[in-house]
Simulated assay, not measured.
Amino acid sequence: MKAEPAAARDHRPIYIQVAESLRARILSGYYDDRLDGELKLVQEWKVSRRTIQQAIEILVDEGLLGRQQGAGTFINHRGVAKRYRAITSITDGIVAQGMRARYRILSSGLEPATPRGTEFFGLLAGDQVYAHRRLVLADDRPVAVVSTLLNPQVLDGLELSHLDKGLYSTLREHYGRTIVHAQDHYRPVIADAEIAGHLRLEPGTAIFFAQRRAVDQDGKPMELSDIAMIPVPLEIAISQVGADWIGKPPLTAEPWDYRVGFGDFGATP
């Protein structure tokens, strides 16, 4: 028996579904400044104008949209930046340090999903993933070998064999996907001969190894990356909340917060 389409199993009110789709577009940068007109949205979703208005009202209340009488509905970029912030990539870290990010593609294309990729992306046996591996340089200095797995079932027509800029900006600009949540795990490892060669280090040098699991604005598993980095100074910030005290600052969303940057790529190892 043919499986029922996912949309047909969604029993939420239509205006909620439309609001969710519009929210994803706004967060992914699909719209520059102005939302499509109500009539265009009515035609696209094949719903009533009132349904579109209800969906827009939700996003106005969330602070993602703003209305101007007689001018239309606009993206509230300040509200978007305040509520949803894209995750920093290694490219962002390099550029923020005043250096130029360059890349050398080592391999790029479809391959059978490993058990790790199958579990993370929720794939079936025999499905493929898109594997992209490249050497990242800060100015002309190799700083990292990044091996990334992506889900081609979500990224239609994915092709990165000639990618010459940041992966996150490409996912955002060409595929409407913005990485909004990531879990990173860092540990020191010993560079094998291949990684040491790419990073211009002696085999056996201690380097940092980071693993990243990231999802997009829809909560879809998007990126599974292994990052082998030169031994750079890492910036670590830890804040903890314990017992209350007189004059305490406002509590954060979590009892403790841990952040680590990609490091100072301009430093000498």
Rank of each mutant, 00 (worst) to 15 (best):
E202G: 06
R34C: 05
Q240R: 12
G29Q: 10
V241H: 06
D61L: 11
Y130D: 02
E4A: 04
K165H: 15
G29D: 09
R50H: 09
K2R: 11
R50E: 11
A24W: 14
R12G: 12
R213S: 11
G176N: 06
E20V: 03
A193L: 01
D127A: 15
R213I: 01
L158Y: 03
V129Y: 03
K2P: 14
I16N: 01
P255T: 00
D139H: 05
D244W: 01
R67A: 10
F121N: 01
I246Y: 07
S161V: 00
T148G: 01
R49A: 12
D226G: 12
Y130C: 03
Q53K: 08
D264P: 09
E62N: 07
K220T: 13
P249G: 00
L137N: 04
I52Y: 13
G247D: 13
K40P: 04
A7S: 14
I75E: 09
R50F: 04
A131L: 12
W45I: 02
E159T: 02
Y186H: 05
D216T: 06
G63V: 10
G117K: 09
Q69A: 15
G219N: 06
P231S: 08
Y186R: 05
A243K: 13
R134L: 13
S239K: 05
A24R: 15
E119A: 15
K220E: 07
A55M: 03
V146E: 08
L22A: 04
R259E: 06
G66Q: 11
Q43T: 07
G242L: 13
M222H: 00
R12Q: 13
A96E: 12
L163A: 15
T51C: 14
E57A: 14
I105P: 05
R12K: 13
A243F: 13
H185M: 11
A81F: 07
E44M: 12
L158W: 02
P115L: 13
D257G: 00
I246Q: 10
D92Q: 05
E57F: 00
V136F: 13
L59V: 10
E57D: 14
G266W: 01
P221L: 12
S225V: 00
M1N: 04
A196F: 06
I195E: 07
H162W: 06
A253T: 07
S108E: 05
S161K: 05
L251M: 06
T88L: 14
E159C: 02
Q17E: 11
G93H: 12
P221G: 10
E4F: 01
S147I: 06
E57Y: 01
L234F: 08
R133M: 03
V180D: 04
P152E: 11
H181P: 00
S161Y: 00
Y15P: 00
R187G: 07
L39E: 15
T205D: 03
H11S: 12
G70V: 03
D61H: 12
E202A: 15
W245Y: 14
G219T: 03
D218S: 10
D127L: 11
